[in-house]
Design a binder for these strands. Structure first.
Lengths: 354, 354
DNA sequence: GTGAAAGCGCTAACAG
DNA sequence: CTGTTAGCGCTTTCAC
């Protein structure tokens, strides 16, 4: 029933060479005459041959398996768009380079989270791992992974991660600065910031950028509230509802990601607040969420697909030895995407404050 | 550097038995004294042994690899939430049962889409495939997969798929019926329906349900428009904008999924239309999108995680031989989730029509 | 340049 | 009940 797949020996026989030679052309090895290589390639074509990855990896050749590790919040819905975009970018590059990509969500609060990552790595014989925050700054984990001979690249490492592995990401501090400037330019002076979980260092840097922008803007601009969310829609809506309960709320709320901004929007709507008329809200990431909500979110675009692609490229470079030397952090460009959720401070609000 | 992983022989030596015996306890085989099994288990524990899946699969044992095939629209953003929920449910069950899960998005319009699925299957040595629409109704594909000795289970097959493989899903016709009844009960009589791509048969059945509900409701209830979308947010907003351009629009719009409903909502907002005051909108699936938008979407809950879980269970049953006999379709319960996007027809609108 | 031989870690007959 | 013997398809020394 099951048509047996052709093996390397079938190709060898068909092309009248030894098995080793086939293996050589398969792996782009040296010491094969062009004429012979040609012949082997033709036989592969004819037989529709494809190397068996299991056998290959068992025999000691690389497994050509990479893994993308994403943090998940056991009970909260995962930030699917963020994950998908990263995955898509990585996947495309893997395809182009002939790697396999495994994507795994690991509960970030789990006490054995490191163990889970390590287990995936060993059981699947991964050659390279892509770590997203907060794993990207888990120096201990990174060292353990490397000890097993696996390459590591981090997405958006906050600082510690950059010292121990290659990394890819945007300049988060500048992103926070830029979106804050955008709001300041619109006339806002009373701002609130909603951060994500504390371990997500690169997101924390967005707040550093906000502070820098405020310092530059002078003493009349201030952060009236600092809310600690967890990147979820729910936290965004709950915290914003609480924020709006207080007297003299801010005129603008900067959120560390789009999901929380969507939650903030929802809370504003439930109170019948006009956005951006009475409250401007901004997100971060520019995931599809920012266009799905109403009004569409002003946000900071992060080139997630490119980041995924770049991560694979780095891994491949380290694996093949093309890339050598010190850890490198590759900064990709970000942009503020002005949409309708952030607007000018209304005159009466501005004067009320003055 | 790289600590060599313990092999089955290490375990055998350590526990003083033959390699085969270890293999047997590994695979839960019969013919092992409890005392010996105990001893072997202890040795595995002590050595922190984990079977090498590559070797296992190469040796002819099952690869224990399952794959979830999702349709993607090359250029459109994927319906991430739908995919994630299905994946999460499947993944959890896989973990429990000791299977690996591979998730792959395949462009549904690609001429070689079947080839892509088949290639993934053979290259990864999958033992079972979970097919989502429209692949779930691709009888040719299903037969080809089975010919390779791989088990198949479909998610939401529309009809053809049910005749050739096991399936899991809700009663989509009833779902369409129920949400339509909900709207009729709210007083709506002029309805519009937005469908997804034509090949997605189970989604088409939702429309059958709508028609049944209308027939029951009598002649004054009617479908004033039938829009053909493609399940994306964009198609939802574009088509709705067009719909609202026409004179005498419907009072309610039933969308075949949440993403299109979100798009519809967005289009309504851009025109300053009150939802649900002037237009009620409903979605389908109850993905997080339905809570992210404003007002939250009335929708039909589809137990996606349970569907993913159930699919793996079926595959496992067929693989182990626990489940035998004819293809079975397992219907999971759905429910209408009333939220704020659908409301009563306003008196003036009702009379305007009368 | 090329091929023969020796495994990688495991499962699956087949004997005991 | 348990162990022995062959491979699964490939990469890798190491001869030629």
């Amino acid at each position: 029933m099951t048509a047996r797949r052709p093996t390397i020996d079938d190709v060898a026989r068909q092309s009248g060479v030894g098995r080793t030679t086939v293996s050589r052309v398969l792996n782009g090895g040296p010491n094969v005459r062009d004429e012979v290589r040609e012949r082997v390639l033709k036989a592969m074509e004819a037989l529709n041959y494809q190397a068996n990855p299991q056998a290959r990896s068992l025999a000691g050749g690389g497994s050509r398996m990479l893994a993308l590790i994403l943090a998940s919040d056991l009970e909260a819905e995962p930030n699917s768009f963020y994950a998908s975009a990263l995955e898509l970018g990585a996947l495309r590059e893997c395809l182009a380079l002939g790697y396999q990509l495994l994507t795994r969500h690991v509960p970030q609060q789990s006490p054995d989270r490191r163990q889970q990552v390590l287990e995936l790595m060993t059981s699947q014989r991964c050659e390279g791992l892509i770590l997203t925050p907060p794993f990207a700054d888990d120096v201990v984990l990174i060292e353990e992974i490397r000890r097993s001979g696996c390459k590591v690249v981090t997405i958006s490492p906050g600082g510690p991660g950059r010292a121990v592995a290659d990394g890819v990401g945007i300049d988060d501090e500048a992103g926070g600065y830029d979106v804050t400037r955008h709001l300041l330019d619109l006339g806002h002076r009373r701002l609130a910031f909603m951060s994500g979980i504390a371990g997500h260092l690169s997101a924390e840097q967005r707040f550093d950028g906000l502070r820098r922008a405020l310092r530059e803007a002078g003493p009349d601009a201030e952060v009236v509230d600092l809310l600690r969310g967890d990147f979820t829609f729910r936290s965004g809506s709950v915290l914003t509802a609480r924020l709006l309960d207080q007297p003299n709320p801010p005129t603008a709320l900067i959120c560390a990601n789009d999901d929380m901004a969507a939650g903030a929007l929802s809370a504003a709507h439930s109170r019948g607040l006009d956005v951006p008329g009475q409250l401007s809200i901004t997100g971060f990431d520019d995931t599809p969420v920012s266009e799905i909500v109403w009004p569409p979110l002003t946000t900071v675009h992060q080139p997630l697909k490119a980041m995924g692609r770049e991560a694979v490229l780095v891994l491949a470079g380290r694996l093949t030895g093309t890339m050598r030397g010190d850890w490198r952090f590759r900064t990709l460009p970000h942009t503020v995407v002005p949409r309708a959720s952030a607007g000018q401070v209304l005159p009466q609000l501005a004067t009320a404050i003055a």
